[in-house]
């Protein structure tokens, strides 16, 4: 199944070069792939995996390992950031 994977701010560095222009990458993953498994696959530093959204909805840290993605889901991740 296909899901969209997005990394922003300092995490953009963990995307392949061609994906950095859009901060976005389409992934072909087996059914049942979890949020935690996708994150592990990109070797993201745990301290930088702060704001994790699936289709814009926040996923609590404790839920990430067990949260299965579905076809068409958008997984977006930010390090600790803020603004005003």
């Amino acid at each position: 199944m296909r899901v969209t994977f997005k990394l922003y701010a300092m995490l953009s560095d963990y995307l392949p070069d061609e994906a950095r222009k859009t901060n976005s990458l389409t992934l072909d993953v087996p059914p049942g792939r979890t949020v935690g498994q996708v994150i592990d696959g990109f070797n993201l530093p745990p301290k930088l995996v702060h704001l994790v959204l699936v289709n814009g909805n926040y996923i609590q840290p404790a839920e990430r390992a067990g949260r299965a993605l579905a076809e068409g889901d958008v997984l977006a991740i930010w390090p600790p950031i803020a603004g005003g």
Binding site: K6, Y8, A9, M10, N23, K47, L48, H50, L51, A76, W78, P79, P80, I81, A82, G83, G84
Partner: peptide
């Protein structure tokens, strides 16, 4: 702090646009 020590200096408040 990751926000005031790293995030804000590098990306500014504009980092919120995509969020």
């Amino acid at each position: 702090n990751a926000v005031t020590g790293q995030g804000l200096p590098k990306f500014g408040t504009q980092v919120l646009m995509n969020v």
